[in-house]
Design a protein around this nucleic acid. Sequence first.
RNA 1: GGGGGUGUAGCUCAGUUGGUUAGAGCGCUAGCCUGUCACGCUAGAGGCCGAGGGUUCGAGUCCCUUCACCCUCGCCA
Length: 595
Amino acid sequence: MIRSHTCGELRAENIGQEVTLCGWVDSYRDHGGGLFIDLRDRYGKTQIVFGPESGPENQESARTLRSEFVVAVAGKVAHRPEGTTNPRLATGEIEVHPQRLMILNKSLTPPFQPGAKELPNEDLRLKYRYLDLRRPEQQATMLLRHRIIRGMRAFFDEHDFVDVETPMLGRSTPEGARDYLVPSRIHHGSFYALPQSPQLYKQILMIAGYDRYVQVARCFRDEDLRADRQPEFTQLDMEMSFVDSDDIIGLIDGLVARLAKEVLGQEVKLPLPRMTYDEAMERFGHDAPDLRFGMELVDITDLAKETDFRVFRATADGGGRVRGINVKGAAANYSRKGIDELTNYVMQDFAAKGLAWFKVEEGRTLASPIAKNFSPALLGKIAERTAAQPGDLLLFVADQFEVTCKALYALRKRFGEELKLYDPNTKNFSWIVEFPMFARDEESHCWAAMHHPFTAPRPQDLPLLASDPGKCRAQAYDLVINGSEAGGGTIRIHDPQVQQQVFGLLGIDPAQARERFGFLLDALAYGAPPHGGIALGIDRWVMLFGGLDNIRDCIAFPKTQKATDLMTEAPGPVDPQQLRELGIQIRASEAPSRR
RNA sequence: GGGGGUGUAGCUCAGUUGGUUAGAGCGCUAGCCUGUCACGCUAGAGGCCGAGGGUUCGAGUCCCUUCACCCUCGCCA
């Protein structure tokens, strides 16, 4: 070992010891007679002082040091002179008086300094990711990630889970997201698919009798990126045999409490609250509601039937819904122009036809360009229903249920942030349960699986598969942290009859089922235990636990929104020989552009 | 594929109704300084104003096209 201590380690009790530190030059302050170096590693910073007693040779050498040089310093730990200790530094009581300075490596002038206060643009950070990862904040995030994963692994190990790795090179299944494909050299024209999740393998492991499986699994989905979505991401994937929903939820409750305590130092009261999907959609318009604040959706469809306002009336009579939110005390914050902007937002992004609004005035009267279409009594009822107080802003969307959900959910979320309706440090955990088995696919008018085609219906809903599939609820559950989906799972179908029935509803005929999932159907026929599991989005846990608003900060080497890596410049063109071996020809018009 | 934002010195940004020589702070280079810790002081270097085209006597500024990055809808658990 070159070093005897780290740069975050030395304290007053080390005074007098001979030590060797290694690290990066964080900053240097040359005072002519004496020269101060802050030496940094991932553990902290220690001040090195090249005074006259360190000798002209060392001073000379120290004078050549620049930002991010890598050095080793051997010397004696000394107390800082009276009045020069630095309480902002953990090692601020001491300094090292070097006898020897070794420059282990020089550095070019970095495009940005890891210690700088102002963050450079993200593309620059991504290009020089090794410099960005030197930043203490970024290192703290990677450490947080490590602690979360370590906690998860320990937890599942203590509960008798077996860590089993599943293949990265698998078979494409057209369900779900777009696959990342890997061409086969040996079988020209055939492709592997990178896993979207180890879903089918973990079911097979249950059939194989492993009983409790866990894996920190990399997953790949070739879809467009978002602030909380990367094309490759990491799940804590687990599966158990002989369990029902409550068993999985109860176990994960324990994991949440443990990690909240271990990582955040927060006590979480168990059991975590649960809400049904239907209730979440009614009260918040979304299946992952942010429960840190109120502003719940209010339904006035019944009142809308009594008005002369055509938009409301026609929507209510036509089977749509009229719902709204009360933005408490916000009437003054939003001018006509501000409301126009909100209106454009819901129309542009969520295909809402408009946004109706009322400002609540003294005496709870509702003021609005459309107020004349409402009788005073009706306005009173609306005020009553929305618990309106003077100064409130009421916003309503009249449309199909789904549209009202999306628009009002987005508005609520936006107001929650803009009006700071919650403490950003709060961590709110909850479960959303009893998801529908199926959702209508808008284009094909067929049923589509809400989760995946192996999700089991609730036992009491089995008859509904035949009579009214839309009402059939699944044994599915999502873990929600601060309005973000942090995990989701289901109990799987282990009965081939039920599986066939579900495939039938999804429009997958027996031949197709065999073609796509034959191996799973075969396996299910050889003594499949009842089983179910869950997958937790580790990157999102890190985001939420770390209070970060961006998934890229949680991943050591993330991709940009166009799924490129600015450091390695992946994806890149390949050698024609490689393509020949794979039996692949690129169409001339689509040859890779030089980036 | 649609909507929005950003792009000016190595970095973070300012740049007036279009006006001739494009600025600041940090960083960098050199010098001075024995107690600094975002050290200080002095001097200096550093610009294809993302790229291409257009309007104009004149463009960092206006118009068109395009590229990169970010947010978002669609897409995706």
